[in-house]
Design a binder for these strands. Structure first.
Length: 885
DNA sequence: GCCGTCACG
DNA sequence: ACGTACGTGACGGCA
């Protein structure tokens, strides 16, 4: 059997565009020796590799637009009129992309007066006539009009490495029309980004309905007089000329004067020699290495570094050296509080000393060197390294460069906690932890210790190589003090908190486990009785059948997989059947039982403590997160759950738990960064902020007139504002109509015009800069702010509003934590900072220190940063965490 | 491994 | 016309 010939057609402009924005956040990391950006080039080539491997084409062509004026602009001079112009950083890459394609043996082509689409359409028809299969790659959904049984269109989704494949069948499923009818649809609805109009008030849904009813646009207009009187009919008649023009504009010209034969498009494959030179010029390390892999054994992929034994004489050399050293302490296991150290490597950038013998950590001069803050060190993940070394009796100080922290600050998406992944973002190839150790059952330490040490040496080398570049980027972003003064010192504070751990009384949890088990059993039996059968209440699927089929309760909401049985749904069904309340009770207790009562016991260590791990480099906003277990979501809102907190106790008797939290810190931050006078006044005068808001938005004269319900609604509105408000979201939350919610919001913005201005300005800032910032210059990139997709774009806008608020609040408590630790030392207090829960800190302390803490802790917290409004701190204490609230 | 659900700020 | 509050982690069920 002979393989059918296959033509691969790529829409050069649209894919380049997508490639550029897919890697827009790393724009500054991708610059070649000539100072030209290479991010789009890199992403384009990545995509090529994947597609060529996947499609194995015999013929290839990448089509480009020739210029701004085409036969379409002659028909309609505003065609693509509002399109933003191509960023210069992409413009400079377009010739490079053509060069790359040339070296990769792929033909490129452009045709004056025509767009890339038309070239693609024309060649795909030619190829089809010749009996070839055709695959088209594009970022533009409009090209799906070209799909036939022989022609598949793959549209880029999420960047350029993934695509959605359109066949006629898929078009039908997705839109409910045939590929030929897409142009009718576009004609009727118009196109915002290409800037041509359709019929007034007709969007995708209406267009598809009309097409399904009548057929083509011509058919629709043939029958337009028969339609019954409606606005739609009027619009159709009024905009008829426009609709036909738009259809013409949307139609890809499959008969363009392309002077190419199929034989010109034969795929020749890489010109190895030229390609290597080109990659070198572009600093494309990983592509170069990928080429080598093809010819050599993949185990030789690793660059061999000579690693010398970390023995006594090596240690002597290290401790006497004045050089900065890179330190790798490798743990093996899921949780570094229990994982063993499997290797240690120290390098001065020239010599690499390593060992798998952990007894080296008993060497006194090495211990002293590690703990010496004047001996400067670089590493990846300071907190983990401190925790690992601590279990082996070693202290660590003097760390000036933590590559993990810097990578996260530069781009919060680099949060995978893996040096290999960070290296990859800088175009250096280093195996990830998973690639090196394997995953699942195959996960293991290499038998040959040389292999392991070589890996550690590579890690050290990567840290060393990237340090200067990354620190320079930090400085460019004005983030050096965020790193030096906040994140790096905080990593030490967090390490101390994790190592200290919080004492938990297992007996208390055990007792609760028995009580809840009995209760669960009782409710379970009652539910079975009411339902008339036994089933798994924890299965939303089975529960759905019982509620909505057996008991025939009304379906309020559906999920992707079936009926929704979430709380808000069940709350609405409470009156309809007694079983609903029982299910709610069951759910509540079952959650407490599985996640907390039983769940937490698994984490209690032999020292009677739980040692959580704070992820310092995960969230998109700068908050911490807590895992294994999560100690930031211990129940408090309902009393049954809150009982859990009785198990959290101080480590010594006659000690207490002490907690301190910021009051309304996010709203205070909003008052500060928005500069809104009315909101600032409320905080400066220490009014009840929610009551004050209620008074304003309900137009009352005094807060005395505010009813509890008004206050509740105002509070929800304040929250909504912080989240990046939508009328729908607010209406759902407080159970009012969308219209009412919209009126609340309007009134809110009238009363707090500064807040309104902030919301508008921050979205504009995000659009112009591609990111938003906190008060300490923490950055979050928002590429979706430019998305064509309504939802993605709106989501990005809400995050633009929320992130500076949530993130600045995170900055503030981080500063407070660092100052807190200093204060505790300075005042020689025995108190320990144990936990952080976003806006509060939890301590244990001798009862005799409580009075001191009540004075000092709030003063450290409210002076952490200077805002235009005061920060307010509230404290509590008691025998257990339950009582300290 | 993903989904629905629910705990926290 | 679109389908929404922001940020997290862990559990049980189910493919």
């Amino acid at each position: 059997m002979t393989q059918n010939k296959k033509l691969l057609l790529i829409d050069g402009n649209s894919v380049s565009f997508r490639a550029f924005f897919a890697m827009h956040n790393v724009l500054d990391k991708f610059v070649n020796g000539d100072g030209i950006h290479t991010n789009a080039l890199y992403a384009f080539n990545n995509m090529l590799d994947l597609i060529l491997k996947d499609e194995k084409p015999t013929h290839t062509l990448v089509a480009f637009d020739a210029g701004k004026t085409t036969f379409r602009t002659e028909m309609f001079k505003e065609y693509k009129g509002t399109r933003a112009k191509t960023p210069p950083e992409l413009m400079e890459q377009l010739p490079l992309i053509q060069d790359l394609l040339n070296y990769r043996g792929i033909k490129t082509y452009q045709l004056p007066n025509y767009e890339a689409d038309d070239i693609i359409g024309t060649m795909s028809r030619k190829a089809e006539k010749d009996g070839m299969d055709v695959t088209i790659i594009t970022g533009d959904r409009d090209l799906t009009q070209l799909t036939t049984d022989k022609v598949t269109v793959r549209v880029n989704v999420k960047g350029v490495t993934e695509t959605e494949s359109y066949t006629p069948k898929h078009v039908k499923e997705k839109l409910g029309i045939t590929p030929q009818q897409i142009i009718d649809m576009k004609g009727l609805m118009g196109d915002n980004s290409d800037h041509y109009p359709g019929v007034e008030k007709v969007g995708e849904k209406t267009a598809i309905k009309l097409i399904n009813q009548y057929g083509s646009m011509e058919d629709i207009y043939e029958h337009v007089d028969e339609m019954k009187k409606s606005k739609l009919k009027e619009h159709l008649i009024d905009d008829k000329d426009q609709a036909f023009l738009s259809k013409k504009l949307a139609t890809i010209n499959c008969d363009s004067p392309v002077e190419l034969n199929l034989s010109d498009l034969e795929y020749r494959g890489d010109n190895q020699e030229m390609l290597i030179q080109f990659y070198q010029k572009m600093n494309f390390q990983s592509f170069l290495e990928r080429m080598d892999i093809k010819t050599e054994d993949s185990s030789k992929d690793l660059v061999k570094i000579e690693v010398k034994e970390l023995n006594d004489s090596a240690i002597k050399e290290i401790v006497e050296s004045q050089k900065v050293h890179t330190l790798v302490v490798e743990g093996f296991g899921e949780n570094y509080h229990t994982a063993p150290i499997i290797g240690i490597l120290i390098s001065d950038g020239q010599t690499y000393y390593g060992t798998t013998d952990v007894s080296v950590l008993e060497n006194q001069s090495l211990k002293t060197w590690l703990a010496d803050k004047t001996k400067e060190k670089y590493l990846f993940d300071n907190k983990q390294t401190i925790a690992l070394l601590h279990r082996y009796g070693c202290q660590l100080a003097g760390v000036s460069f933590d590559m993990l922290l810097v990578a996260y600050l530069l781009d919060t998406n680099d949060n995978k906690q893996d040096i290999g992944l960070v290296a990859h973002n800088y175009n250096i190839s280093l195996p990830t932890q998973e690639e090196f150790y394997g995953k699942g059952v195959k996960k293991a330490v290499p038998e040959d210790e040389k292999v392991l040490l070589n890996f550690l040496a590579q890690e050290a080398q990567v840290i060393d190589t990237l340090k200067d570049q990354m620190l320079a980027e930090l400085k460019d972003n004005d983030q050096d003090s965020l790193y030096d003064e906040i994140e790096l010192p905080l990593s030490i504070v967090l390490a101390e908190m994790e190592i200290k751990g919080i004492t938990v009384e297992a007996s208390k949890l055990q007792e609760m486990e028995n009580t809840f088990a009995k209760k669960l059993n009782e409710i379970e039996q009652k539910i079975y009785q009411e339902a008339g059968k036994e089933f798994n209440i924890n299965s939303p699927k089975q529960l759905g059948v019982v509620l909505f089929e057996d008991l025939k309760l009304p379906v309020i909401k559906k999920t992707k997989t079936g009926y929704s049985t979430s709380v808000d749904v069940l709350e609405k069904l409470k009156d309809k059947s007694p079983v609903v309340q029982m299910v709610l009770d069951y759910r509540q207790i079952s959650k407490i039982q599985s996640t907390y009562v039983v769940g937490l016991q698994k984490f209690i260590q032999p020292d009677n403590k739980i040692h959580t791990i704070y992820l310092q480099t995960l969230t998109q906003t700068g908050r911490l997160s807590s895992i294994e277990p999560n100690l930031q979501n211990i129940p408090i809102r309902i009393d049954e759950g809150k009982q859990i907190r009785k198990a959290f106790v101080p480590q010594h008797k006659d000690w207490e738990i002490f907690s301190a939290d910021y009051s309304q810190v996010e709203l205070r931050v909003l008052a500060h960064i928005s500069g809104d006078e009315h909101m600032q006044e409320a905080f400066n005068e220490d009014y009840d902020i929610h009551a004050h808001t209620a008074m304003r938005i309900f137009g009352l004269n005094s807060t005395d007139e505010v009813t509890p319900n008004m206050r509740r609604q105002a509070k929800a509105t304040n929250f909504g504002i912080v989240y990046g408000i939508s009328d729908y979201g607010l209406s759902q939350n407080i159970g009012i109509s969308r219209k009412q919610a919209a009126a609340f919001i309007e009134s809110y913005f009238e009363q707090y015009p500064g807040v309104k201005k902030y919301m508008d300005d921050i979205v504009k800032y995000a659009r112009e800069n591609g990111y938003v910032e906190t008060i300490m210059h923490r950055r979050r990139y928002l590429p979706d702010i430019h998305s064509k997709n309504f939802n993605m774009r709106n989501f990005a806008q809400r995050t633009a509003m929320n992130t500076p608020i949530q993130g600045s609040a995170a900055d503030i408590i981080k500063v407070a934590m660092i100052n807190m630790q200093k204060m505790l030392v300075k005042e020689k207090l025995q108190a320990n900072l144990l936990l952080q829960v976003h806006d509060e800190m939890i301590f244990e302390a001798p009862a005799t220190e409580i009075a001191t803490l009540e004075k000092l802790v709030p003063s450290v917290m409210d002076s952490a940063v200077k805002l235009d409004v005061p920060l307010k701190v509230e404290t509590a204490h008691g025998k257990t965490w339950y009582e300290a609230k």
